[in-house]
């Protein structure tokens, strides 16, 4: 017994090192697994508070840019107002706010609810980037909601606290989003290879799909996160993968991921009902 205690005392630094290292590696491995609620995240009181304080300061430098974005959105809305009678609901050229209008206008009310939120921290330099937004459970924001701007999609909510939420950015190696070609129904998975902050990849698109440079990519609507038809980006390059039967497509985002000020959070209001139904069918 005495020897064991002596051993522990003699090697206390090594043991301390190993225990702490094991714990931090555990946290790291957990952070690389997809869609798991994490203990270490910036949606808490202290980190959220610090970020929202700095973003208040930073906002002054971006006012002009945000104004421009708002003007552009207003312009499109006005255009839409004038053309209302000739435009069909669900037209792909519409941005998100127009989409909301369409939803409210149309007789069939679509099951989406849209909230706005302010970005207080945005990373894009690493491999697994996150965005922190001001707006949490108190504002009705919950995990797995889609996040978009007027130009395109941004990511998916992962963790929430009372007043803040973290969003898995499109620019995250763990991010997987369903997307499709605008002019056909062929779909694939949107992911990021970690290289350029304005280029993402669409993989697993069947070889039969009519792919050409300059085509638009939109959200696929096969998940409950994003409504179908939100524009994502434009094809800049494509090639066949190793199996020679699927395309890997490089897409230039419409959104500038390095400069995001305000976002919209989309909630699918009938999600729970659909999921319960699906679980029921799986159990049978």
């Amino acid at each position: 017994m005495q020897q064991i205690i002596n051993f522990l005392i003699r090697n206390k630094n090594k043991l301390l090192f190993l225990v702490l290292l094991a714990f931090s590696l555990f946290l790291t491995v957990q952070s690389h697994s997809f869609q798991k609620s994490k203990f270490i995240n910036s949606a808490n009181f202290i980190t959220g508070g610090v970020y929202s304080w700095t973003s208040d300061l930073e906002n002054y430098f971006h006012l002009e840019e945000y104004n421009k974005q708002l003007l552009e959105e207003n312009r499109r809305l006005r255009l839409r107002l004038h053309l209302e009678s000739d435009t069909l609901p669900g037209d792909d050229s519409l941005g998100l706010v127009e989409l909301k209008l369409v939803m409210e206008d149309s007789l069939v009310k679509l099951p989406y609810h849209i909230r706005s939120a302010k970005v207080i921290n945005n990373n894009y330099s690493g491999q697994n980037n996150y965005i922190t937004i001001k707006g949490g459970t108190r504002d009705g924001i919950a995990p797995d909601m889609g996040v978009v701007t007027s130009d395109g999609i941004v990511g998916i909510v992962e963790n929430t606290s009372a007043n803040y939420a973290t969003v898995i950015s499109l620019l995250n190696a763990n991010s997987r989003i369903n997307a499709q070609l605008k002019n056909s129904e062929h779909y694939g998975t949107l992911m990021w290879n970690g290289e350029m902050p304005n280029i993402v990849q669409l993989i697993d698109v069947p070889r039969l799909a009519p792919v050409s440079r300059g085509d638009t990519i939109i959200t696929g609507g096969r998940s409950l996160i994003f409504p179908k038809g939100i524009p994502i980006g434009q094809i800049v390059d494509y090639r066949l993968d190793q199996s020679e039967s699927y395309y890997t497509i490089d897409i230039q985002l419409f959104n500038d991921m390095t400069s995001i000020g305000h976002v919209y959070v989309i909630e699918h209001t009938e999600k729970q009902e659909i999921q319960e139904l699906e679980n029921l069918s799986e159990d049978d």
Binding site: S24, T28, T166
Partner: peptide, 14 residues
Amino acid sequence: FFENSGGMNAAASL
């Protein structure tokens, strides 16, 4: 905590 990066910085600093 701020970077949402799990325990990467903790491990490297350690």
